[in-house]
Structures are given as structure tokens and as C-alpha cells.
């Protein structure tokens, strides 16, 4: 809904806070999600996400949510679907070139970002949308990604060795493996 969407942008700072909480909860739930299986929970979570974000932001379920970088104004509502707007056609008063009765999504985005604590993210250059991900849950994608990032950080030493000996790793993967080792494969007392 257009008016709810405008409300969300006006309160971008509150939504930013809410989103950060939601994200850390999802990341914390990663072991549970992984046990149930991400494939199994994908559809119900996507349905919840579609309903919530559809109401609040007129979400189009692109699957690659950037709301936190666009002042809580969804760029997929831009008729040109710009991921890095606004275009040069903005009308006087900040209205859309293509839909003159609608406020420009990107004018709202820059204003919304200015109210946010971490609003400088609006300056990042966003890549084009991967159209294959349309309709899938962005929330799950983020929690999977972040959880994987945390795991990788825990295994930093292994990553460093893998990066330091790229040729050996390419030709003899066992010399610098990146995959997680099962406990049984490691000699007790020798590790760490």
C-alpha cells in the first residue's frame, strides 16, 4: 500500500533497528534452520515474508532485498526498477517520471537513508538483480550468508593457509582444505 510505504520511509530509522534485530535472530536460528533443512522452510518463510513486506513496503519479492541500503524504500517499485537511482527524469516536487502521481522511489530512498543510523550504505553501487531468485526468501538468504560468514571467520586460519598456497590447493586440495573437518578426522590433542 502506497501510504504504508510512505510511512515506512518516514520511520526508516525505527525499521532499520527492527530489521537489525530480525536479522540477528535469523542468524542465531541458523543451526535450527539447517537441521530442519533450508529447502523445507523456504516456502513457508517466503510466504510470511511476502505478506509482511508486501504490506509494509509494497515488496515485489525480488529475493535480493536491499531495503537497509535504500532508506527502507523498495527500489523494485521504481517503474524502471533502478537499483541505483534516481534517474534524470524526476519531476518537480520529487514525483516519478513514468507515474506522475507517485513520489519518486529514489527521492524517498535518499531521504529515508539520511534518517538512518547506517544510511551511508545508500552510496554503495548495487549489482543488477539476479532474476532467478525472484519469489524466494531474502531473509533466509541473508541468514544463511551471514551464518556462513561467521563460520568462515571461525575457520580463519584454515582460510589463510588456503589463500597463501593457492597452487598447492588447486592441484592437491588435501594440502589446504577449506571444507569443515569432521571431529573424527582430527587427532585428539594435536589440534589447537
Amino acid at each position: 500500500m502506497y501510504r504504508v510505504r510512505l510511512f515506512a520511509v518516514r520511520h526508516s530509522r525505527a525499521f532499520e533497528w527492527l530489521y537489525a534485530r530480525l536479522e540477528s535472530t535469523m542468524v542465531a536460528l541458523d543451526p535450527l534452520f539447517a537441521r530442519i533443512g533450508y529447502g523445507r522452510i523456504e516456502r513457508p518463510i517466503a510466504a510470511i515474508e511476502r505478506a509482511t513486506k508486501g504490506l509494509l513496503f509494497d515488496c515485489k519479492m525480488c529475493g535480493q532485498c536491499v531495503l537497509s541500503s535504500t532508506g527502507m524504500s523498495c527500489p523494485m517499485n521504481c517503474p524502471k526498477q533502478l537499483r541505483n537511482g534516481p534517474c534524470g527524469g524526476v519531476r518537480p516536487g520529487g514525483y516519478c517520471e513514468v507515474k506522475p502521481q507517485m513520489r519518486c522511489v529514489w527521492v524517498l530512498a535518499w531521504d529515508g537513508a539520511a534518517r538512518m543510523k547506517d544510511g551511508s550504505k545508500v552510496r554503495d553501487v548495487q549489482p543488477p538483480v539476479d532474476r532467478r531468485l525472484e519469489g524466494s526468501s531474502s531473509w533466509l538468504r541473508v541468514s544463511r550468508e551471514k551464518a556462513a560468514g561467521l563460520r568462515e571467520a571461525r575457520e580463519a586460519s584454515r582460510t589463510t593457509i588456503a589463500k597463501a598456497f593457492p597452487d598447492a590447493r588447486a592441484h592437491e586440495p588435501a594440502t589446504a582444505p577449506l571444507a569443515t573437518e569432521p571431529a573424527a578426522a582430527i587427532k585428539p590433542g594435536r589440534d589447537q
Binding site: P86, G88, G89, R91, V107
Partner: peptide, 20 residues
């Protein structure tokens, strides 16, 4: 387009284009 809204953000967007 320096002369159309949002005037305040146009230079910032130019910076983004340079970055890109």
C-alpha cells in the same frame, strides 16, 4: 541532471557514478 530534484542528492549520485 544537476537541475532536477532531488537537488541535494544529485552530487552524491554523481559520486556514485564515479565510484561505478
Amino acid at each position: 541532471n544537476p537541475c532536477v530534484p532531488p537537488l541535494d542528492w544529485r552530487p552524491e549520485r554523481l559520486a556514485k557514478k564515479v565510484e561505478a
